[in-house]
């Protein structure tokens, strides 16, 4: 059996260049084939011919695999090194920010709110990481992951903005940042839905419009106390959403009606003498 597998592999590998890598691949394939044959025997297959054929059937597209092997991109595997570099850079960034914080504290006796430097650095690092994962997610068309990452990024930015405004400025009601955050998250998600041509994009748009209108209404009410007639914003949001949905449905219906019109014409108006006799 082993000799037959070897003969098969020697012939098969003659279709690609005789490199050291090809030899190693051939040796590994032989090991896999022998292991598979052994497995079939353990399972109860007794016909050696059938075992041989069954193993080869697993390698039906082996020619293609060999071509892929030969044309594979030979690249330096630097993933592990990049991870190490990333870790060192992160530690260095946090250390630099911590040292800066200590220097400012010692030199100018300001310990608060300069600690935000460290928080900002960590958040920036996390957002950078989200960006890297996000790019991969886009490449792999995993849009749900991208949407989650964007939302998480907006939350981090909002928290940081809130902390800065709360601790470093005398501005009142800075917690309103979190109301803006909600509208921003929904807005960004809607934008992504349109960018990736998501199925629910036309449903998401009116939701965003309404969320935006409500948040704006609440913020204006709290800041400049125009609760009335500010409430009109909420209704305007509903109206805008309904208008958008109506336009969407009308356009969709028009498209379908056009297709049906053509179908009706083909069926009821267009003539062909073959229809007299066709059954």
């Amino acid at each position: 059996m082993e000799d037959r597998f070897k003969a098969y592999l020697v012939e098969a590998f003659k279709t690609i260049a005789p490199t050291k890598a090809a030899m190693e691949y051939r040796k590994q394939t032989l090991k896999d084939m022998l292991a598979r044959a052994q497995e079939l025997r353990i399972k109860g297959m007794t016909d050696e011919e059938l075992i041989f054929d069954t193993v080869l059937e697993d390698y039906e597209d082996f020619g293609e695999k060999l071509k892929e092997f030969e044309s594979r991109e030979i690249k330096v595997n630097s993933a592990k090194r990049n991870v190490l570099l990333g870790a060192v850079l992160s530690v260095a960034l946090v250390a630099i920010l911590a040292i800066t914080y200590v220097i400012i504290g010692v030199a100018a006796h300001v310990w608060h709110p300069t600690w935000l430097l460290i928080v900002g650095g960590i958040f920036a690092g996390l957002i950078g990481l989200f960006a890297l994962v996000g790019v991969k997610a886009v490449k792999n068309k995993k849009h749900a992951v991208l949407r989650l990452l964007v939302a998480a990024g907006i939350v981090l930015v909002s928290v940081f903005v809130f902390l800065v405004l709360q601790l470093a400025t005398p501005l009142p009601q800075v917690w309103l940042t979190f109301l803006a955050m909600v509208a921003l998250i929904v807005g960004a998600d809607t934008a992504i839905a349109f960018l990736v041509n998501g199925k629910m994009k036309w449903v998401e748009l009116p939701i965003f419009v309404e969320v935006f209108a409500v948040m704006l209404y609440v913020m204006l009410g709290i800041i400049v106390h125009i609760w009335h007639p500010g409430w009109i914003l909420c209704l305007a949001g509903v109206v805008a959403g309904l208008v958008e949905l109506s336009v969407f449905v009308a356009m969709r219906n028009a498209k379908k009606a056009e297709a049906e019109k053509k179908k009706n014409y083909d069926k009821n108006v267009k003539t062909d003498e073959k229809y007299w006799e066709e059954w």
Binding site: L40, K43, G44, M45, T46, D47, L50, T54, E57
Partner: peptide, 14 residues
């Protein structure tokens, strides 16, 4: 029986 055994394993594998 022996032939059937072989065929059954082949089928199960596939």
């Amino acid at each position: 029986v022996c032939a059937m055994k072989n065929v059954l394993i082949w089928t199960t594998e596939k």
